[in-house]
Design a protein around this nucleic acid. Structure first.
Lengths: 222, 222
DNA sequence: TATTTTATGTTATAATATTAACAGGGGAGG
DNA sequence: CCTCCCCTGTTAATATTATAACATAAAATA
């Protein structure tokens, strides 16, 4: 569209699905899939074709009537929309099990993200190296954020230090926070904060299981 | 697709939020919060009070008009709705970094979940012990699922073996799958499958950042 | 070349979710 | 006891999202 600041609001679910499309497209073998139809893509993800076409329509569409979508064209467009064409530097605070798992996450490269810092308060962790990145003391966060022009910070600390960590990140100049601690963190408007609670996924799974499985005993009370 | 155990269908977003409420409530100090109002809880999560009351209304409400909600009552009710009151056994397949991180996830206990098995194909991992659970060969999955009455399986394998792993789990008798591999997995109806793609959270964050940050160059073309 | 098929972009309709408005219940304070 | 205020449960209205329907364009086929 005409305006990059985006006049009409794109539904949040659409953005989530665009990410799904991109993820799916980047995984399928390129030689067999030079082109793909909305029907094919929808089948792979478990949606209806109209959803995909409607999502694309928010951005003017990616093909032309009659043709199928060109996969490379699609991927490039999605990456541009999602902002993945501009490389970003990020840091991780909290080098516990989850922090280490994320530090080893290969897909960061594909997303245009570069891990430039790992931080913790635990002296036993400070100094070790994970994928060529050395773990530093948390006091060094402001320095690294400024020097490396870091825009994104990932929080994998325990719950009770999540908010203080977020504050530190924000003061240091980080613009987006991806929080994996169980506690919600908040910040001033202008800072993008994504709280990613793993337990919520588990709970919704549990709920659906309960609906599906026969109740063990026809309990009298609610 | 209608569910006979459920008269009126509860919106999916409501279930997600119920999980958020429970997570938030379980984290706040019990002595200071014996009771809580919809307004207070909404503030903590960043919602409006009416959302919470509407969500609760799908289940008949948790308090009575005039009173505030009793926290213990609320927690018990949410746990019952989400099916967390019934203990479940689960296994993890794929003991890479993410699998190990999940194996060490303390919150499983709070969710009524018990890790009873770890599996991998890598001989170098088979035999090691994480939190008193020994890593077994993937061939032993059917045996353990049956013996331990496992209902939930977590997939943390690479993308190319995700679907085959899901098939194995389903054939073994698992009823719910929590898939962390980047590739969507599918199964027959009756099996609950939750695909949890971490990269999607990162991409939506990237998108929002792009909307917020000033465009580096006023590029002519979209 | 005419026609059928398949595909996308667009518009219109149906379904769903959010938000607001309202109706009572209980406690505090005069 | 009465009034005021705050609270929840419920219903109604609004806004948003998903689905279906349609118009059009290209390729394939006869």
């Amino acid at each position: 569209m005409e305006n990059q600041t985006q006049k009409k609001k794109v539904p949040h679910m659409t953005i989530t699905r665009l990410a799904q499309y991109l993820n799916c497209l980047s995984l399928l073998p390129r030689e067999h899939y030079k082109e793909i139809s909305s029907k094919e893509l929808a089948e792979k993800i478990g949606l209806k074709p109209t959803v995909i076409r409607q999502d694309f329509h928010h951005f003017g569409g990616f093909g032309q009537a009659g043709y199928r979508y060109k996969v490379t064209n699609l991927i490039e467009g999605l990456e541009r929309i999602l902002g993945l064409d501009q490389k970003q530097n990020l840091i991780i605070i909290g080098v516990g099990h989850l922090g280490q798992a994320l530090a080893n996450y290969r897909n960061f490269d594909k997303l245009g993200l570069r891990l430039v810092g790992l931080f913790d308060v635990n002296p036993r962790l400070i100094g070790i190296t994970i994928r060529d990145v050395r773990v530093r003391d948390i006091d060094e966060v402001p320095t690294v954020v400024e020097r490396e022009n870091v825009h994104i910070g990932i929080i994998t600390t325990p719950a009770d230090s999540a908010q203080s960590t977020a504050n530190l990140l924000i003061e240091s100049g980080v613009k987006g926070i991806w929080n994996f601690s169980p506690m919600n963190v908040t910040g001033p408007s202008g800072i993008i904060i994504q709280n990613e609670h793993l337990s919520i996924g588990m709970m919704t799974l549990s709920y659906q299981l309960k609906q599906m499985l026969p109740p063990l005993s026809a309990s009298s009370e609610y």
